[in-house]
Design a protein around this nucleic acid. Structure first.
Lengths: 215, 215
DNA sequence: TAGATTGTTAATCGATTAACAATC
DNA sequence: TAGATTGTTAATCGATTAACAATC
């Protein structure tokens, strides 16, 4: 296997797509063997890209035959770490926070939001699905007792940095940030910004250009 | 200006970040002139990247001085198309749909979700903020009367393709797809997949590797 | 064996970064 | 003028795609 740092980020983003597709093949279609061409075809990815992505981690197929769906799913699951369950604490019990807690499909990817925290006294004590919203003051205790490495930020942009600081101090190792602002954390903390406003603007950009060209 | 197709996708993703930062500078910090170094610094982007990104669209700065914050914000707003308001129809009045309707910060980016549709009779008629959930049967009428070019899919994966087909038939030109599945549409339709499960897996991947290396 | 498909090397393509003349 | 900063060209870096030997 290659050094982990030399693997393209884009490859890591495609592995979950392969994983989910294989799961679907296994669960709903009873397909046992698949070629890189067929797997890629279902995802709009060239077969050569599929093979290259997998090659960073080892040899998983049989020449002339293809990949065993069950085996490959298991292998990719191990590579990604989704074969385990990763507990997470979510900060910010607003609409988006509630949506994430109730989102189906995280479980299959190894994510389990176990605790939801907020500073708002009106929200503390409320239930979201099976979870009761706790006070932000309990953060350190929750993270320690739950052995939690993963924090999810769904507070307004103005509060995001403060929450990030608290998560880091509590011992969190990775942060999924939905607040539309950059958060600054120590180098060893992994951050992913899920900036919804950026997503919509790239669509608006294309629409706007069509308009300009039409006119 | 360069041909629109020759501009890197990554550049288009960074423009909204510049735009939002300039807005913040203008609104909260009363800063009138900014250098590419300072603007980039606030976003974790090299100054040379900032200048390169802008250069695809023209010359916006003054050598030896920097960029006028107000002017640059206006220019980027025009480039992105966020100087206008783009009405959108959202399909799927679940948790995520509700969260998006209530999301602050889309308005500043030119997005206005004007209609929410669902097939579920229990949901039709419910209110989400200022919007009343309508029947999916009204899609064609809603799109035509509202002059809507933008559709947002927040239904389960199993229904996403069918919804996409209906949106295309109704005359939608761009689709923001939150369902964790690939949707197939004609070439001229712009699609952006906002696949939340992929986002979390890239974090889990890094956590998992730290674990493996520690052990 | 003939056809199919992998895994990998080499070529291509695209995006970022460095360097610097232009100029405020 | 001296210092600062842009806009752009060239160099570098990284990711994708093409080609093909290996092999089922």
């Amino acid at each position: 296997m290659k050094n982990i740092d030399s693997i393209p980020k884009a490859t890591i983003e495609r592995l979950p797509l392969y994983y989910r597709c294989l799961d679907k093949l296994l669960t709903f279609e009873n397909i046992e063997v698949i070629s890189s061409k067929e797997l890629g075809g279902r995802l709009g990815i060239p077969s050569t890209q599929v093979r290259k992505d997998l090659s960073y981690y080892g040899e998983f197929g049989r020449r002339g035959v293809g990949y065993d769906v069950h085996d490959l799913k298991k292998s990719i699951g191990k590579i990604l770490g989704v074969n385990k369950t990763w507990p997470a604490v979510l900060i910010g019990a607003g609409n988006l926070g509630r949506a994430l807690v109730n989102y189906e499909g995280f479980e299959k990817m190894g994510l389990k939001i176990t605790n939801v925290l907020d500073v708002d006294l009106d929200k503390i004590g409320n239930r979201i699905g099976p979870i009761t919203v706790e006070s932000m003051k309990d953060l350190d205790k929750v993270v320690e007792e739950g052995n939690i490495n993963l924090g999810i930020i769904t507070v307004p942009a103005s509060a995001a940095q403060e929450v990030a600081d608290k998560l880091v101090r509590a011992g969190i190792k990775a942060i999924w940030n939905f607040a539309p602002t950059r958060i600054v954390v120590p180098d060893e903390i992994v951050v992913r910004n899920e900036d919804l406003a950026v997503g919509i603007v790239s669509l608006i950009y294309h629409l706007s250009w069509q308009d300009k060209l039409d006119a």
